[in-house]
């Protein structure tokens, strides 16, 4: 709690880092935001180690596996995440409440088909909080739902041989008890 002064409000830090996506869009983000992406942090640290003299932050970091659309969403999420953390530096409970509220609102603007690319991008960037958040989002969307509902939600088709599915359903009958109405 006492070392608050050592970690200044992340949104006010001035150093910028430039990220370039696979579709050649360039994003300039604050260092605090970029450092939440562990893949970027790793790259950044390596660069700094190899080239001690380059104190200025002119680095352009290529992200060949991330498109601009999910990256923009992840940056927004990350900024807000840091902001909420900074605003509630000494009250964990408050922070969780704010975060939960924000995440609920956030998801209202996310389409299910976007979640997949967000998960892939968060995974590639090694941005743990976002990865868990989006995976949890998918999990709770199918929680307590029938197989038919989940297939439709994901857009999956059964590829079992005739009889195979019935056998599995029998074996795992206990897992289908009491699911929600579709």
């Amino acid at each position: 709690m006492s070392n608050q002064s050592e970690s200044p409000n992340p949104t006010s830090s001035s150093n910028k880092i430039t990220l370039k996506t696979s579709d050649n869009e360039v994003f300039e983000v604050e260092e605090a935001v970029a450092m939440k992406f562990c893949t970027v942090k790793q790259y950044f640290d390596d660069e700094n180690n190899n080239n001690v003299t380059s104190g200025t932050s002119t680095t352009l970091i290529p992200l060949p596996n991330v498109e601009s659309h999910p990256l923009a969403i992840l940056i927004t999420y990350c900024k807000k995440h840091l902001e909420i953390k900074a605003n509630n530096a000494d009250n964990k409970k408050e922070m969780e409440i704010d975060m939960e509220h924000y995440e609920r609102e956030f998801l209202k603007n996310v389409m299910p088909q976007e979640l997949t690319e967000l998960i892939l991008a968060a995974n590639y960037l090694n941005f743990k909080e976002a990865l868990d958040f989006f995976c949890r989002a998918v999990a709770s969307a199918i929680q307590n739902k029938s197989v038919e509902y989940v297939r439709k939600f994901f857009g999956l088709e059964s590829d079992f041989k005739p009889g195979e599915e019935e056998k599995l359903r029998e074996e795992f009958a206990w897992s289908f008890e009491g699911v929600d109405e579709d």
Binding site: V150, L168, S175
Partner: peptide, 11 residues
């Protein structure tokens, strides 16, 4: 329970 029931989605 939910996790096991996904085994029926597809092979």
């Amino acid at each position: 329970r939910d996790s096991v029931s996904t085994s029926i989605l597809s092979s």
